[in-house]
């Protein structure tokens, strides 16, 4: 069997042609780099997406802080993860890379802060 995928690893968006025998990939064509093959493997067996959203910051210079899953979460858990993050709040100051939720939904993947947010009233450093 053959299935068509669009690689989302980079902006090139290669059109992949994947030959399958059951669940096993026999051949990937159309990828312009090795990431295409990795993507095809993952997309067929265990599709994952990096989740980015915002969570509330208490006492921060900004009301929310952007966060992301450190690596791709299983696609089926994205909505459940959003539900948890909607109810999550952190206290300022927050530094880029700080862990916001550890091991979300038992995946072993942390949700981390994607920027610095200083406390309200503090001058930014310039």
């Amino acid at each position: 069997m053959e299935t068509n995928l669009i690689c989302i690893s980079c902006p090139k968006g290669c059109h992949l042609k994947v030959s399958l025998a059951g669940e096993n990939i026999q051949e990937v064509k159309g990828n312009r780099c090795p990431r295409g093959k990795e993507y095809a493997e993952s997309e067929i067996k265990d599709p994952r997406r990096v989740l980015t959203t915002t969570v509330l910051v208490k006492g921060g210079r900004l009301p929310v802080i952007p966060v992301k899953s450190q690596t791709g979460l299983p696609k089926g858990l994205i909505i459940a993860a959003m539900k948890i993050l909607r109810e999550t709040a952190v206290s300022s100051p927050v530094r880029r890379g700080d862990i916001v939720v550890e091991n979300i939904l038992g995946t072993g993947i942390n949700i981390i802060a994607a920027r610095d947010v200083a406390s309200a009233g503090t001058q930014s450093k310039y």
Binding site: V50, T52, P66, K68, R96, A114, R115, D116
Partner: peptide, 10 residues
């Protein structure tokens, strides 16, 4: 690496 926009800026 795959970064979020604010990380790249940071």
């Amino acid at each position: 690496e795959e970064l979020a926009g604010p990380e790249y800026a940071g």
